[in-house]
Structures are given as structure tokens and as C-alpha cells.
Amino acid sequence: MMPRAAVLPPPDFLPEPDMAEPLIEVQNLAVDFLSAEGPLRAVDDVSLSVERGRTLGIVGESGSGKSVTSLALMGLLPRRSARVSGSVRLDGRELLDLPETALRDLRGDVISMIFQEPMTSLNPAYRVGDQIAEAVERHRGGNAAAAWTRAVEMLRRVGVPSPELRARDYPHRLSGGMRQRVMIAMALACDPDLLIADEPTTALDVTIQAQILHLMGELQREAGTGIILVSHDLSVIAETCDEVAVMYAGQVVERAPVAAIFEAPEHPYTLGLLGALPARRARAGGARQRLPVIPGTVPQLHEMPRGCRFQGRCPFRIARCAEPPPMEPVGPGRESRCWRTPLEALAA
């Protein structure tokens, strides 16, 4: 980024863009699903932020609320059955207060998402080129031919071979990897400021996974896109993210710069993810890519413990853990939700 002051002093009646203001800032996000037995809280007190050109990783076991959080940011949770509260500020604008029509203008343009399910996320009835072009036409206007050209160009950029031909294919003709590339092309077609990628590579084999992550990084460097990358895969997080948020049972339990979290995790659950829980150290080898298995299971939504949600599986549990621990700063740019952090002394 070029320092503007060096070229021209900013006119003092215009406020200098506040570089410290994050692209997206989420505060105390909560999602309740309405059910026959009353509301079930799937996401609780989640706070995050991402700056332009940076990547935030979200990790956590299955069911920890990663996808629900992502969909809440997109405003894509079913309005009938989901209640979203808290605050989501994109570029200073409160998204949760925006009317649906205004949100639609942002979706696919300023903020877009790649879904976890590449096999079913494309419409089987239309050619993939048309499905990408549809997003371009929606937000960029112009004629159909220009949108189609853009769709083909995007397919080329995401590394689809012979993009002119593939654009004419229906989704069922493409492999999972190709479909995920189509989804990425679609998500990036309008140069979004924020890209939410929900396990973009889970369904793919390792080489394609690496290609796709590389590609996202490249596009990010070109356009300064902020990325939220949801992943099970700690090695992917380590390689691609600047910051990490660890989710457990609907809450963020630890948030830290990526290097710090791998060096010295502050929450017992993070320790568990890294395979470093004392006495129960998960076996090395085997599923290298996957999260190590932590003994016990994530509590169901309807039987959340009142206190710390990890207490049923935590070797460091003390009496106080029956009370809900707050999210508290534990170092520069770090927060943890545990009564016993800092853990250094305990984990030794």
C-alpha cells in the first residue's frame, strides 16, 4: 500500500481512512435455532475481526459452529428458524441492521462465500459459465456477453483447463475439485472485499487442495481481499492464516496470532487440538491432516453445561469451571476463555 502522505498531504476536511479499522468486526455474535423445545443456541458470544489482505482461520471439531457463524455473517441463515444477534460491522456498516435488499447488494459483490459442499452447491440445471456470469451480471451490470467473458476469465484464473469449454459444461460433468474451483471463481468474480471459505478443500485430494489454497493466497495478494478460512486442518491453518480463532461448542475459546498459538496454546482445548494434552496425548501419525482425537464428545446444543463448555473433557478442570469463564486478554493480540490461563505452568 502506498503511503498517501508521501504523494499529497490529505485534505484535512476528509478524515484519513482509519487503517486500524478492521474490514469486518464481529462482536458477541449469537445464533439461536428455533426448535419445538425452544431456542437452541448454536453460536454464542463470538467475536472476531479481519483486516484487509489478512486471513483469519477458524478451527474446531465438527459441530462447533463454524459453518453457522459463516452463514450468519453472510446473512444466509434461514430467517424462519434462526435468530441472529450481536453485531457484524463490515467497513463500519452494521450488517445485522441492514434490510434484506441492501444485504443482497453486498452479497456476492462485497462479501462472498465458498461453501463446504462442492458437490451440491451448483445448480444442476445450468451451465457453470452461466452460473458465474449470473453473479457478474447481478452486480456489475453490462450485457450477457461481457458477463460470460468474465466467467471464462475467472475459470482460467482459478486454474480450470480449457475454460471456454468447461464454462459450457453442466456441473455433473465436473469432478469435485473442478466444481470447487467453479465455486471459487463465482465467489471471486466480483472482487469481494471479504471472502468466507468454509472448508474449501475438504472434499479434495491433497495436491488440488494445495493448488486451491495457493490460488486463494494469490488472489488475496492481488486484490487485498480479507479471508476467513474455516478448516479442520491445522497444517493448512499454519500455512495460510495470520490469525486463528479456535471454536468449541459454539464459542470462540481462543484467539491468537498464528505463530503464537502453535508455539504456546493458551486454552486446554487448543492444546488438545494440537495433540498436546497431558496424560492423554493423542497418538502421532495416522491421520496427519485431521484434528487429533480428544477423548469425550462435544456437548449437544440442548445439554450445554452452564459453566465452561469444555469441562467434561478438560484435564485441568477445577471447581471454578462450573462458572462460565469470560474471554480475557492473555497477551498481545491474544484472548482465551479459561479460568486457568496462562497454561504454561500447567502444561509443562
Partner: peptide
């Protein structure tokens, strides 16, 4: 379905989502 969610993620109007997708 997932592809209708994708259509919504593109910012299409609900009318277009319903009729076309």
C-alpha cells in the same frame, strides 16, 4: 438445497432465486 443457498449468496433477488433456481 445447497444450490439455492448459492443463488442467494450471489445476491440474487428472492424472485429470481425462486423462479430460476
Amino acid at each position: 438445497s445447497d444450490y439455492v443457498r448459492t443463488a442467494r449468496a450471489k445476491g440474487l433477488t428472492e424472485r429470481r432465486v425462486v423462479i430460476r433456481h
